[in-house]
Design a protein around this nucleic acid. Structure first.
Length: 854
RNA sequence: GGGCCGUUAGCUCAGUUGGCUAGAGCACCUGCAUGACGCGCAGGGGGUCGGGGGUUCGAAUCCCUCACGGCCCACCA
C-alpha cells in the first residue's frame, strides 16, 4: 500500500509492475491445485524467426485478458510460453544472418566460430555446427520476445517455457513418434512427394499455396493405335519422356473406342495405354491428357488408381536425371533416337528442358501450331520461390484417423466464434493421402531411428532400428543404436542414421503434451491436460489445430483442449493483413508502448471482436490512453473522500447510491458472462460505457453530498457506494488494463488486484439493498443533462446557478425524480424552485441566474 | 468452382429474441476555469443502416437476390 500521488501518471508503470509481478511470482502456477481448479492455456509458440509487429501483440493480448479473468475468478491459471524455433523459417534466417550453409557430410568442427559479418560466399559447416548456430541466434531472438511480452503485460508463468526444438520437445516428439510406429499409425514408404527443389525438401499438403503463373499449352502429336494422330495439350511438354499413359473421361465418345489400346509418344516412341478416368475433363484441351510421373497431384492420383508404370525423371535438385533408353522400364521403338532426344534434356531444369523439347518437337513436326500462352494456378510451397515438383523418395507418414472421428472431434470442441468450425470441417473433408512428417533439413527434431547396412554396404531403409524410449532424446547422427558401436557407423554390416528431421507441425501438434509434461511429469500432466483453451489464428486451423486434435485423439483418445478461441488478423486501413513481408507493419510494438502505454495498446487490441479482423488504429490507442488516465484521476478523486469498503453493508442508504450499485451489479453479470464466452471485447465495451457515465453523471451527482459533513448519513452512503463501485470497476478493467488498475489498487489495497477475487454481482445487490431501482440513476442523469444543456447553450459556466426549473415528464418518472431530487438540485446548482409538470414528452426548462456584472 | 465472414456517421465500431426519434468514441463546430482529470468538462451538427425485391401492423435485425471487400477450400493436363 502506498499513498495517492499528487499528480498520477502512466509513465513508468510497465517497468514498475513488470518487475514487481516477477519478484512476487504473481503469475506463478501453483501446481498443488487439482484439475478442476486449473485453467490451462495452450499458448501458440511464436516463431522466433520474424520481427515482431502489432499483430502479435493483438492476439496475445486477447489470450491474456482471458487468463487474467479466469485467475480472478478463482482458477489457477497454467499459462506457459513456448518458442517455436523449429522449422525451415528459422533455418533460412540463420543461413542469411550468419552466411553459412549446412553440409551434413562435413565432420563437426569444435573450433568453428560464427563470422562477425556474413561472408558473401556462404561457409559450409557441419550439421552439429549449424544446429549450434541456430541455437545461438534463436536465443537472442527469444530475449526480444520476452521483453515485449513482459512489457505488454502477458501474465505468463515464465518458469514454464519450452522450445519446440529443445530437449523436452524433442523427447516428447520422438516418444509420440515411436508409439505411433508401434501401433502402425506411422509408417515409412517410398512414394511421390511434393518437393521444393530449392530447399530440397518434401512439403506437406497443409503448406501448399497456389500462385498464378504464366504458362502455355503445347499441342503434341501422339499416335493412336491405328497410326492416326492423337492430339494432346500439355503445359509440361518436358515431362513427355515420363509419360506413362494417356487418359480421357469414360463418357467421352471421342475416345471410347480407344480405351484399352495403346498410344505412342512422339519423339520417344514409347507405347502407353489409353485409359479412362472421371478426373479427365472433356472440356480441357483436346479432352485427352497425358499422365506423367509426375507433373502434378492429379498425375499421382491417376498413377495410383490406374496402377500405371513409374518413369520418374525429375531429380531432387529439379533437374532431369540421366536415363538409358531401351533398358527395362524404358522400352521404346527406337532407343537410339529416343536417347539422342533425351540427352538434349538430361541435366536441365524444368524450364530449360521445356524450351529445348519444344524445339525438338517442332523440328520433328510433332508440335502442332504455336504454344498458346495461359495463366494457371501452380502449386508452390508457401515459402518457396519455384513451383513444386513431385519426386519419389522415402518419407515417414502418419495415418490420418477416419474422417468421421475427426469430424466428431470437431463437434466436441467448443469454437469461439462458432462459425470457425466450418473451416476445420472443410479441411477434414478435403484430406488426401496421409500426413508426410519428413523434412530433408537439419535444424529440427530428428527421427529416433537408424537403418541397418548389409555386408555389401546397402542401406535397408525399410527396416529401421528404433531407439529405446528411455534413451530419448536421441540424435541418430551422433548417438549409436542399441547393439552397435560407434565404429560401425556407415560401414558395411553397420548402421546409418536417418538423415531427416520432423516437419514443424509434427512437433507443434504436441504443444499440449510438451507444455503439460506428458511422460516426463505425470503429476503436472494430470493437473493440466486436456487443456482448457487453445488460442490461435484462423489461418492455421488446417495445420496446428487439426494436427493437434489428431495427435491427442491417437495418444489420449480425447481432445487436446476444450475451447478453441480463434483470432482474426490485424489489418491495415486497406484491409490487408499486417505482415513484415507486405511492408505494412512498420510500427514497432515497443515504440507504441512507449508512446501510448501498454494499457492503451491493450485497449486497442481488446476492441477487436473475437474472430474478427482488427484494424490497426492509433486513434484507438489514444482513446485507451485517455481511459487509463481517467481511471487514475477518477480513482484519486473517489479515494480522496476516504471512500472505504469496510462495513459498507448497511451504510448505502441514499436512493441514488443504491440505484448506482444495482446498475453496477447488472454490469458485473454482463461482463462476467462475456468473459466466460471469451468475449473480452464486449466486457470492455460495457464496462467502459458504465465507467464514463459513472464519472460524468454519478460522481457529479454525489460529490457535494460526499463532501457534506452536515448530512452524515448521506455522506456515509455516498462514500461507501463510491468505494464499492471503484473496487468493482478496477477489477472489471483489470484483465484489459493490468498496469493502471494495479497502480490504483496499490494506493489503498494490499496484494495484487490480479490475484483478488472477481466482483460478485450478488454482493453488490446486497449492498444496494432490496428494491434498489436503476431507473433512479437514469432519471437523475437525464435531468442533469438537460440543465447542463441550458447552461451550455447560454454559453454559461456549468457553475451558473439555476434560478428556477420545470421538469415535464410522466408521473412515474417524476415520482422517481422526487426520490433523488436533492442530489439533482445539488449537482445542477438549482437554487430556486424545481417544479414538475406531468406530461407526455420529457422536457426541462430552466431559468439561469443573471450573469454577475464585473 | 464450393464455402465462411463482413458491408451501419468522414474514421473505428456497438446495435441480444424484429418494437420508442438508429447509438458510442474519434474527427469537426460552439462554449466552459468546475473541490479529480484542459490528455479535461458541457453541448451541437452529421447516417436513404451496400443495392434491389419480399414477409410483417412494424425490418439495420428475418427470407431471396445481386454487388463489393476479405479469408478458407478445390483434381490447376
Amino acid at each position: 500500500m502506498t499513498s495517492i500521488p499528487e499528480k498520477p501518471s502512466l509513465e513508468g508503470l510497465e517497468a514498475k509492475w513488470r518487475a514487481r509481478w516477477e519478484a512476487d511470482g504473481t503469475y506463478r502456477f501453483d501446481r498443488t491445485k487439482s484439475r478442476d481448479e486449473v485453467f490451462s492455456i495452450d499458448t501458440p509458440p511464436p516463431t522466433v524467426s520474424g520481427a515482431l509487429h502489432p499483430g502479435h501483440v493483438c492476439s496475445y493480448t486477447h489470450t491474456d485478458t482471458i487468463a487474467r479473468f479466469q485467475r480472478m475468478r478463482g482458477k489457477e491459471v497454467f499459462y506457459p510460453m513456448g518458442w517455436d524455433d523449429n522449422g525451415l523459417n528459422v533455418e533460412r534466417r540463420v543461413q542469411m544472418l550468419t552466411g553459412t550453409l549446412c553440409d551434413p557430410s562435413l565432420p563437426y568442427d569444435p573450433d568453428f566460430r560464427r563470422p562477425e559479418k556474413p561472408p558473401k560466399k556462404p561457409v559450409h559447416i557441419s550439421r552439429p555446427n549449424f544446429v549450434e548456430l541456430c541455437g545461438e541466434v534463436v536465443e537472442q531472438l527469444e530475449q526480444t520476445y520476452f521483453d515485449l511480452w513482459s512489457d505488454i503485460g502477458l501474465s505468463v508463468d515464465w518458469s514454464q517455457t519450452y522450445r519446440t526444438i529443445g530437449p523436452k520437445a524433442t523427447r516428447t516428439s520422438q516418444r509420440a513418434f515411436l508409439r505411433l510406429l508401434e501401433r502402425d499409425l506411422a509408417y515409412r514408404s517410398e512414394s511421390p512427394t511434393l518437393w521444393d527443389v530449392d530447399f530440397r525438401t518434401a512439403v506437406a499438403q497443409a503448406e501448399l499455396e497456389d500462385r498464378e503463373l504464366e504458362g502455355a499449352y503445347f499441342k503434341l502429336r501422339f499416335r493412336g493405335p491405328d497410326g492416326q494422330d492423337l492430339l494432346i495439350d500439355t503445359t509440361r511438354p518436358e515431362l513427355l519422356p515420363a509419360c506413362v499413359a494417356v487418359v480421357a473421361h469414360p463418357d467421352d465418345e471421342r475416345y471410347q473406342p480407344l480405351f484399352g489400346r495403346n498410344a505412342t509418344t512422339p519423339l520417344f516412341g514409347v507405347e502407353v495405354p489409353i485409359v479412362a478416368h472421371e478426373l479427365a475433363d472433356p472440356e480441357k484441351g483436346t479432352g485427352i491428357a497425358m499422365i506423367c510421373t509426375f507433373g502434378d497431384t492429379t498425375d499421382v492420383t491417376w498413377w495410383r488408381e490406374l496402377d500405371l508404370d513409374l518413369r520418374a525423371i525429375v531429380q531432387r535438385d529439379g533437374r532431369l536425371r540421366p536415363v538409358t533408353w531401351g533398358e527395362p522400364g524404358w522400352e521404346c521403338a527406337d532407343p537410339t533416337a529416343a536417347q539422342a532426344a533425351y540427352d538434349e534434356l538430361a541435366g536441365k531444369n524444368a524450364k530449360q528442358a521445356q524450351k529445348r523439347i519444344a524445339e525438338l518437337l517442332a523440328a520433328a513436326g510433332e508440335l502442332v501450331g504455336d504454344p498458346r500462352p495461359i495463366t494457371h494456378p501452380v502449386k508452390f510451397w508457401e515459402n518457396g520461390t519455384r513451383p513444386l515438383e513431385i519426386v519419389t523418395s522415402h518419407q515417414w507418414f502418419i495415418r490420418y484417423p477416419d474422417k468421421e472421428s475427426m469430424l466428431a472431434r470437431g463437434k466436441e470442441l467448443q469454437w469461439w466464434p462458432e462459425f470457425m468450425r466450418v473451416r476445420y470441417e472443410n479441411w477434414v473433408n478435403g484430406l488426401q493421402g496421409d500426413w508426410n512428417i519428413t523434412r530433408q533439413r537439419f535444424f529440427g527434431v530428428p527421427f529416433p531411428v537408424w537403418y541397418p547396412i548389409d555386408g555389401d554396404g546397402n542401406v535397408d531403409y525399410l527396416s529401421p532400428i528404433l531407439a529405446d524410449e528411455a534413451s530419448l532424446p536421441v540424435d541418430p547422427t551422433t548417438d549409436v543404436p542399441p547393439g552397435y558401436n560407434p565404429e560401425q557407423r556407415n560401414q558395411p554390416g553397420g548402421f546409418a542414421a536417418d538423415p531427416d528431421v520432423m516437419d514443424t507441425w509434427a512437433t507443434s501438434s504436441l504443444t499440449p503434451q510438451i507444455a503439460c509434461g506428458w511422460g516426463d511429469d505425470p503429476d503436472l500432466f494430470a493437473r493440466t491436460f486436456p487443456m482448457d483453451m487453445r488460442p490461435q489464428a484462423h489461418e492455421i486451423i488446417r495445420t496446428w489445430l487439426f494436427y493437434t486434435v489428431v495427435r491427442a485423439h491417437y495418444e489420449h483418445d480425447s481432445l487436446p483442449f476444450r475451447n478453441a478461441a480463434i483470432s482474426g488478423f490485424v489489418v491495415d486501413p486497406d484491409r490487408k493483413k499486417l505482415s513484415k513481408s507486405a511492408g505494412n507493419a512498420k510500427d514497432d510494438p515497443m515504440s507504441l508502448i512507449t508512446q501510448f502505454g501498454s494499457d492503451a495498446v491493450r485497449y486497442w487490441a481488446a476492441n477487436g471482436r473475437p474472430g474478427m479482423d482488427v484494424a490497426f488504429d492509433l486513434g484507438q490507442m489514444k482513446i485507451g490512453r485517455r481511459l487509463a488516465i481517467k481511471l487514475l484521476n477518477a480513482s484519486k478523486f473517489t479515494l480522496g473522500f476516504g471512500a472505504g469498503v469496510e462495513g459498507a453493508e448497511g451504510r448505502v442508504t441514499a436512493p441514488l447510491d443504491r440505484a448506482m450499485l444495482a446498475t453496477l451489479a447488472g454490469l458485473v453479470d454482463e461482463a462476467t458472462a462475456a468473459f466466460e464466452r471469451f468475449d473480452y471485447a464486449r466486457a470492455l465495451e460495457r464496462t467502459e460505457t458504465f465507467f464514463w457515465s459513472f464519472c460524468d453523471d454519478y460522481l457529479e451527482l454525489v460529490k457535494n453530498r460526499a463532501y457534506d459533513d452536515g448530512d452524515p448519513a448521506g455522506q456515509a452512503s455516498a462514500r461507501a457506494a463510491l468505494g464499492l463501485a471503484l473496487q468493482a470497476l478496477l477489477k472489471l478493467f483489470a484483465p484489459i488494463l493490468p498496469f493502471v488498475t494495479e497502480e490504483v489498487w496499490s494506493w489503498w489495497q494490499e496484494g495484487s488486484i490480479h490475484r483478488s477475487p472477481w466482483p460478485v454481482a450478488d454482493d453488490l445487490r446486497a449492498a444496494a439493498g432490496e428494491g434498489a431501482d436503476p431507473a433512479l440513476l437514469t432519471v437523475a442523469a437525464d435531468v442533469l443533462r438537460e440543465l447542463r444543456k441550458v447552461k451550455s447553450e447560454a454559453k454559461r459556466s456549468m457553475k451558473t446557478p439555476v434560478a428556477a426549473a420545470t421538469v415535464t415528464d410522466t408521473a412515474e418518472r417524476l415520482a422517481l425524480l422526487a426520490r433523488v431530487e436533492a442530489d439533482v438540485r445539488s449537482a445542477g446548482g438549482v437554487a430556486g424552485d424545481l417544479a414538475t409538470s406531468e406530461g407526455e414528452g420529457f422536457a426541462v426548462t430552466a431559468e439561469l441566474a443573471p450573469p454577475e456584472d464585473t
